[in-house]
Simulated assay, not measured.
Amino acid sequence: MKEHLEMEKQLAAKEAVKFIKDNQIVGLGTGSTAYYAIVEIGILISRGLKIKAVPTSTKTSNLAKSLNIPIIDINQVTTIDITIDGTDEFTNDLDLIKGGGGALYQEKIVASKSKKLIIIADSSKKVDILGKFKLPIEIEINSFDYVLKHIIAINGVGEIRLAPTGPYTTDQGNYIIDADFGLINNPIELSKKLSQIEGIIGHGLFINLADRVIMGYNDSTITYIHKSSSL
C-alpha cells in the first residue's frame, strides 16, 4: 500500500512541474510529497530550465542545492510565480490541512506570496471534511501553556509535537502543537478563532489559497480546480 501511495505522489509531482516556465520564481514545499516535485524540478534544471526557487524550510533548501536548483531568499521577492507543495488533507473546496512536515508558517508565507499554488497529493489525502489529521499550530515557545488552554476553550485538545531530544522546534525556533478539533465543519470560523489567540504564529488551515490539487490516483492523476482559479 505504501509503495502504491509513493507512486501516486510521483505521478502528481510529474504533472505539477509541467506548469513551471522559464525565468519564473518557484516556491518549493516541504515534506514527503513535495520532495518528488523538487527532484523533478532538478531534472528540468539539468535539461536547461532557468528558474529561481524559494524554499519553505532548511531541509528543502538543502535538497534543492544538492540538485543545483538556484535558491533565492523569500525576503528578496515580493511575489512568487508558482509554488508546488504537498498537503496532509484536502477537500473538494480545496481547503487544506498542512504542517505535518513541520514547516507550516514558512509554507503559508510562501503560499500567500504565490500567484499560483499547486498542491500535490496521493489519494489518501482526499477527505470529505477536514479534521481526521490533527491540525498543526505553530506557537511561540513561551506560550504553549496559554495556547493549550485556549485550544481547549474552543473545543480542541492539543499536545506539543516532540522530537527525540524534546519538543520539536521549527526553523524559526518555534514549537508546534498538534490539535484535535474533531471534524472541522467550518474551517473558516476555526481559522478566525485561532488567529485571535495570542502566541499562535500560524496554523495549518490553508483556506482559499490553493488554485488546484493534483492527486495521484492508481496509475494516473485527477485534478481538482478551485472555482476562482485562472490556472
Rank of each mutant, 00 (worst) to 15 (best):
N68K: 12
N68R: 09
N68Q: 08
I69G: 07
P70H: 02
I72V: 14
I72D: 01
D73Q: 15
N75M: 07
Q76E: 12
T79G: 06
I82G: 05
T83V: 08
I84P: 10
G86N: 09
D88H: 14
D88K: 13
E89P: 12
T91C: 02
N92S: 15
D95A: 10
L96R: 09
L96S: 12
L96C: 10
K98Q: 03
G99F: 11
G101C: 04
L104G: 11
Y105P: 10
E107T: 07
K108W: 00
K108D: 02
K108T: 00
I109Y: 04
I109G: 08
V110W: 04
V110S: 06
A111Q: 01
A111S: 12
K113M: 08
K113P: 03
K113E: 00
S114D: 01
S114Y: 01
K115P: 03
K115Q: 08
K115G: 09
K115M: 03
I119D: 05
I119G: 03
I120T: 01
A121M: 00
S123K: 03
S123H: 06
S123Y: 06
S123A: 01
S124E: 02
S124H: 08
K125N: 00
K126E: 02
D128R: 12
D128Y: 11
I129W: 05
L130T: 13
G131E: 02
G131R: 07
K132R: 14
F133W: 11
P136G: 06
I137T: 00
I139R: 07
I139N: 06
E140F: 15
E140T: 13
I141L: 05
N142Y: 12
N142G: 10
S143M: 06
S143L: 03
D145M: 11
D145L: 13
Y146S: 11
L148M: 08
I152L: 13
I152V: 15
I152Y: 15
A153I: 12
A153N: 15
N155D: 13
V157E: 09
G158K: 04
E159G: 15
E159W: 10
E159F: 14
I160H: 04
R161I: 07
A163E: 01
P164S: 02
P164V: 05
G166C: 06
T169K: 15
D171K: 11
Q172N: 15
G173P: 11
N174Q: 08
Y175P: 09
Y175I: 07
